[in-house]
Design a protein around this nucleic acid. Structure first.
Lengths: 148, 148
DNA sequence: CCAACCAGTTTTAAATCAAAACCAATGGAG
DNA sequence: CTCCATTGGTTTTGATTTAAAACTGGTTGG
């Protein structure tokens, strides 16, 4: 590509988020991390991503404080990658993408995975933005305000 | 790049979603569309994206049934791009990205925009996955189940 | 101690991207 | 009606990124 125009001066939160995790692999790495994957080789096998790309993405995610490294919990000398609090906060993003995909990207007959509540065994209902009183709001009922 | 490995056979909804909108521009185009932008030139000026890239992305989004074209509402012979129902359904994704960005990607003193409820003038509360009874659930309280 | 494994890094070729030039159709001024 | 600026792209051309595979060096198991 020509040099990527950095959106670092962007005042839109969506643009900044996309700048950090808006590529083909970062969100899938985060998804796997939510799923308990933590080792380099496990990410690599799970995603089928090239190792150099995985290496660079993991480094970026660690730099962005979304993942952190620590000594492997299984006693080996290797390290593992785990979500930070900032990374855990991406849960709604991953769930929103998952639910949208569930609704629109599978043919009716096609099987796909769904997100369940461990406690009740019921599917997690579709997430939606809500007003202060808990009622759902649509995009046309909201407006983006620039703070002064 | 070497040829992109298509994730079309992927059974994970997150992977399919990322395959459709997981690039630097598509989600920003959708965000602008939520904001009322509909004309080629307006997207181009708003995003600062190269025109050929914008053209290709708009075509992809139309093919994916996220946007659709129709005659411009202002009487000119040009066309405009508007969100379909499928595109409107990306609202939770955009809001989740926005809210994560608001929380983590701005220094405390830095100004940024926030999403408000038009009716009440109050900020939209942070979205979170909920259990069937409306209580928030964390990632560790959920599990991904593959349907048979 | 040796072989297999893990976690990367380097190398190389292909694909994509960004910028700018180019082009056709539209619309507005006079 | 004519000229010219605007709109909405497409084409061309390098720069950059990506993917795949080969390579490296420490680790672990036998």
């Amino acid at each position: 590509m020509a040099r990527r125009k950095s959106t670092i001066d962007e005042t839109c939160p969506v643009a900044r988020s996309v700048d950090v995790i808006g590529d083909r692999w970062s969100l899938l790495i985060v998804r796997d991390a939510f799923d308990g994957v933590s080792r380099f080789g496990d990410f690599q096998r799970s995603l089928g991503v090239a190792r150099n790309i995985l290496s660079e993405r993991l480094r970026r995610l660690v730099e962005a404080d979304i993942l952190e490294t620590r000594p492997a919990s299984d006693g080996t000398a290797y390290q593992e990658y785990v979500l930070t609090a900032k990374g855990e906060s991406l849960f709604p993003v991953v769930v929103a993408l998952r639910q949208w995909g569930e609704q629109y990207l599978f043919s009716h007959s096609e099987q796909h995975s769904i997100l369940m509540d461990k406690a009740t065994g019921q599917p997690i209902p579709y997430m939606t933005p809500q007003s202060g009183d808990g009622s759902a709001v649509t995009s046309s009922e909201t407006v983006v305000k620039k703070l002064p």
